[in-house]
Simulated assay, not measured.
Amino acid sequence: MEDDPIFDVITLGETMAAIHKQPESDLYRVSPAGAESNVAIGLAQLGCSTRWVSLLGGDNFGELVHDAIASHGVDVQAPRDARHPTGLMVKEINRGRSRVIYYRSQSAARHMDKGVFAHLAGSRWLHLTGVTPALSASTADLTAAIIQGRSGHNYKVSFDVNYRPGLWPDETTAARCLIDLARHADLVFIGDDEAEQLLGTTDASDIAAQLLRDNQELIVKRGAGAATYIGRTTVSEPAKRVKVVDVTGAGDAFASGYLAADCWGWNPSARLRMGHFMAARVVGSLSDLGPAVDPSKIAALAGSESSQPTSEWSKPK
């Protein structure tokens, strides 16, 4: 059996170098973009100890991604692959809507293999998303092996369905893979739009009936609407009302807030409120990451004195 966890959460998945054209300018900004690293950074912003695991190209973009993520206090375990490049994406935003163009068909992360297992031990949670199995046949096999082969590890698996139609050959293939992975996770995040496409329903009880087995927990997200938790009990919490600038990264931020609150021992309602709090900070900006978090604003979200975090949060190690 493992010793006490070193990290609160370990995440695994591809992060690309994202190129953004600056508003009313000919200048471009380059920053990291990846669902799993977004979650790791969000958790680090909240004082949780996190690690991000991946594979990067042996190029300048790989160096940029590595250093940018590490600068947030995340432990980065992403070896460099000299044979394949770091994935790239170009993000265009017009009137509040974003369009993304990917250059990742030969990216290093598509070639991740079981060598990553060496970096996955020693955490409370391992967070994965449905993006990774969509990258290639090998990463699909890797994701299944990680979720289904946890013998000797104490961590629980959090799985965000994160259905990206453009990455899959068809909806049927995606549903077959993602539903099976969700059924093996301890905690599942799914949007109501994803559930309608993959399961044919937006009803939380129906979604739970199709996905959950014994001792699993489900979070159904509804964008600007309420999020619902189904586990030993069922509760819902409304989203915060904010001006929406760009929704990219909102689901990742929600997951980071929820997982942080779980690590603090908060109850399900408080975890949902923390998820909404983090998501609201992201949709109000053009960045995939929200601004730095003021710790004084966190305790009120717990909702009860018994659920509030300790005075000393866990720190990155």
Rank of each mutant, 00 (worst) to 15 (best):
111 H>Q: 13
287 S>G: 08
202 T>C: 11
296 S>W: 04
285 S>R: 12
229 Y>P: 12
86 T>V: 10
112 M>D: 10
116 V>L: 01
119 H>K: 08
131 V>C: 08
305 E>L: 13
170 D>Q: 02
297 K>F: 01
242 V>M: 13
7 F>R: 00
303 G>C: 06
159 F>E: 00
115 G>I: 05
161 V>P: 04
130 G>V: 08
116 V>N: 00
296 S>M: 09
141 D>H: 11
148 Q>E: 15
248 T>C: 08
175 A>V: 07
239 A>Y: 07
118 A>Y: 03
217 E>V: 10
312 E>Y: 02
273 R>H: 05
131 V>Q: 07
271 R>F: 08
198 L>A: 08
291 P>G: 08
196 E>F: 12
252 D>N: 09
268 P>G: 03
262 D>V: 07
102 Y>D: 00
307 S>Y: 11
175 A>T: 10
75 D>F: 05
233 T>R: 12
62 G>P: 08
25 S>P: 07
12 L>A: 15
289 L>K: 04
14 E>K: 10
39 V>T: 12
145 A>P: 02
218 L>M: 01
183 R>L: 09
23 P>D: 14
180 D>W: 08
263 C>L: 02
103 Y>V: 06
137 A>W: 05
66 H>D: 14
68 A>E: 14
25 S>Y: 03
210 Q>P: 06
131 V>P: 03
34 G>C: 11
95 R>L: 14
137 A>F: 07
288 D>K: 07
140 A>S: 15
301 L>F: 11
157 V>C: 05
150 R>N: 03
307 S>Q: 12
197 Q>C: 08
29 R>H: 14
185 A>D: 06
168 W>P: 07
151 S>R: 14
71 S>N: 07
255 A>P: 07
136 S>G: 11
307 S>G: 09
290 G>I: 06
281 R>T: 14
63 E>D: 14
308 Q>D: 00
306 S>K: 14
26 D>V: 02
73 G>L: 03
167 L>N: 04
181 L>K: 09
164 R>G: 09
98 S>N: 01
176 R>S: 15
180 D>M: 09
177 C>D: 01
20 H>E: 14
289 L>Y: 05
187 L>W: 02
308 Q>K: 15
255 A>H: 10
277 F>A: 09
231 G>P: 10
264 W>A: 09
52 W>S: 04
67 D>N: 10
142 L>K: 01
210 Q>I: 01
263 C>A: 15
155 Y>E: 04
138 S>R: 15
96 G>C: 08
212 L>C: 12
273 R>E: 01
4 D>N: 15
127 H>R: 01
88 L>I: 10
97 R>M: 13
132 T>E: 02
238 P>W: 03
35 A>M: 06
143 T>S: 13
296 S>I: 09
55 L>D: 02
89 M>S: 02
228 T>R: 12
190 I>T: 06
266 W>Y: 14
314 S>N: 11
135 L>H: 01
260 A>G: 00
72 H>C: 00
69 I>W: 00
134 A>V: 07
114 K>N: 13
240 K>Y: 14
300 A>I: 13
126 L>H: 09
159 F>M: 07
130 G>Y: 03
9 V>N: 09
314 S>T: 10
50 T>E: 00
21 K>W: 09
3 D>A: 13
166 G>F: 12
279 A>T: 08
187 L>R: 06
